[in-house]
Each structure stands twice: as structure tokens, then as C-alpha cells.
């Protein structure tokens, strides 16, 4: 028997896909613009500017869509880590990714309708979505409308701190993307989490006994609906 939970509704999956594509376009064109030279260009400078501007505006809209969707659906609560034993939980999550998974230990957290994200995801996503993204988009908008930027800041061009902020956050988010993709391979199978964000259903296969066994007690409380139960209630969606 497999255990599943419908974690990612369609509006969220569409946002995630659009956001991912826009970020890839922005990273590619951003690198091309930053390291522009006569001998290096992923894309011709003028085309890179256009793509970067359009994708940047798209990202701003997509971010607004995410905020509204999260507020309306209650998705926002998944991003708030509980303060109780926060550092202990963080430590055990980092231990699992770095060492525990290699030793065959089970994950300290199993995704459920009540708690989609482990504490490391919560902290990271909170910083990414509610600090880095607003700063990235805000600085990008200032770049698009440079007349809005202060003319001088401490004797330097006012665009300079905006540019450095935009560049540094873009860089950190690029590294986040690499980590995000790598850590997504830590399911029972390599495809588990990728399948979940594609179909909406997070399914823990029966062969992952080592994972479920270690967190069964918690998971049984936090996961009221198995996939079968959800299907019975007519919510729809098939399980594997």
C-alpha cells in the first residue's frame, strides 16, 4: 500500500513551473550580461537585455500571483517554522542530508498535508521567498526604471548599491537553485519529489519502509488523509 498526500495544488504547480523557467532564463541572461565581452556571450547583449527585462517583469507578476495564492489558500503557514526545538530539528535535517542518508537512516520529516516542508525547507524558503525575492525584484525594477534610483549614494552612482544587491542576490538564488534540485533527489527514489511537484501528489512507496518506520508515529498524526481516503472523498487524483 502506498501513502500519499495532495501537497501541491494546480495553482502552485503552475507557479512553480513558471517561476523555474523564468529563473533559468534570468540566470542565463544575467550571466551573459554580467560577463559580457566581445569574446563571450550566451546571447547577444541586446537580446539578453530584452529577454532579461521581459523575464524579470514575468517574475514580478509570478511572485505577485504566488503571494495572492498563498494568502488565499493558506499555503503561507507552511513557510513558518515552529520555534520549539528549531535548531535541534535543523541539525537533524542537515545531518540526514549530509550523513544520515548515506548511512541508510530515515528522514526526520515526512511531508504531509499538515506539514509540507521540513524545517530546513521552511527556513530556506522563508528567506528565499520573503526576503531574497522581494529584494531581487525590487532592485530589478529600479534597474528597469533607473530614474527612480537615488542619483548618488555616499558619493557613488546611486545605481551601484542596487546593482550589487541585484547581482549578489541573483548569485545566491542561483546557488539555492542548485541545492534545491540536488536535495530534491533525496526521496525514496530519485524521482519521488520531482513526481510530487509535477502531479501534486507526494507518495511514499511501500518499499521505503526505512523512511516510514522512523517517522511513522509522527506521520500518522500529521497525515490524516491517505491517497485512498482522498480519492474516496471525491477530491480526485490517482495514487501510484
Amino acid at each position: 500500500m502506498s501513502h500519499g498526500a495532495y501537497l501541491y495544488p494546480i495553482w502552485l504547480r503552475i507557479w512553480h513551473l513558471v517561476n523555474a523557467l523564468l529563473m533559468l532564463a534570468l540566470i542565463g541572461t544575467g550571466i551573459s550580461l554580467h560577463f559580457a565581452s566581445s569574446s563571450f556571450a550566451l546571447l547577444r547583449f541586446e537580446h539578453a537585455v530584452t529577454v532579461h527585462n521581459v523575464a524579470g517583469l514575468g517574475l514580478a507578476l509570478s511572485y505577485a500571483y504566488f503571494l495572492v495564492g498563498s494568502l488565499v489558500s493558506g499555503n503561507l503557514r507552511h513557510y513558518i517554522p515552529k520555534r520549539a526545538a528549531l535548531f535541534g530539528k535543523l541539525r537533524s535535517q542537515v545531518w540526514f542530508f549530509c550523513v544520515g542518508s548515506l548511512l541508510g537512516e530515515g528522514p526526520p520529516h515526512v511531508p504531509s498535508m499538515e506539514s509540507k516542508f521540513n524545517v530546513l525547507q521552511q527556513v530556506t524558503y522563508l528567506l528565499v521567498m520573503f526576503l531574497a525575492m522581494p529584494l531581487l525584484i525590487g532592485s530589478g525594477i529600479l534597474f528597469l526604471f533607473p530614474e527612480l534610483a537615488p542619483e548618488k549614494v555616499m558619493g557613488m552612482s546611486g545605481l551601484l548599491p542596487v546593482a550589487v544587491l541585484h547581482c549578489v542576490i541573483g548569485y545566491l538564488l542561483t546557488l539555492f537553485l542548485v541545492g534545491h534540485i540536488y536535495l530534491a533527489t533525496f526521496g525514496a527514489s530519485l524521482a519521488e519529489h520531482f513526481r510530487a511537484i509535477s502531479t501534486g501528489w507526494h507518495v511514499s512507496p511501500p518499499e521505503r519502509e526505512w523512511a516510514l518506520a522512523s517517522s511513522r508515529a509522527t506521520a500518522s498524526k500529521m497525515r490524516p488523509n491517505s491517497a485512498e481516503e482522498v480519492a474516496d472523498e471525491g477530491v480526485g487524483g490517482a495514487t501510484e
Binding site: H34, F45, S157, L159, A163
Partner: peptide
């Protein structure tokens, strides 16, 4: 850099090298 910011021209080379190094490490 001190007078105007020009995309592609006013990058800080030390910061660039450090960021590439850090990315390689990660």
C-alpha cells in the same frame, strides 16, 4: 564604478573571482 554603473563594465573583479570560487566549492 564611482561615477556611474555600467552593466558588464563595472564589475568588481575580486568579487567576481570570489563568487566563481565559492560556486565551484559548492
Amino acid at each position: 564604478l564611482n561615477e556611474s554603473y555600467i552593466v558588464g563594465a563595472t564589475r568588481n573583479q575580486v568579487l567576481d573571482e570570489l563568487s566563481v570560487l565559492f560556486a565551484v566549492l559548492v
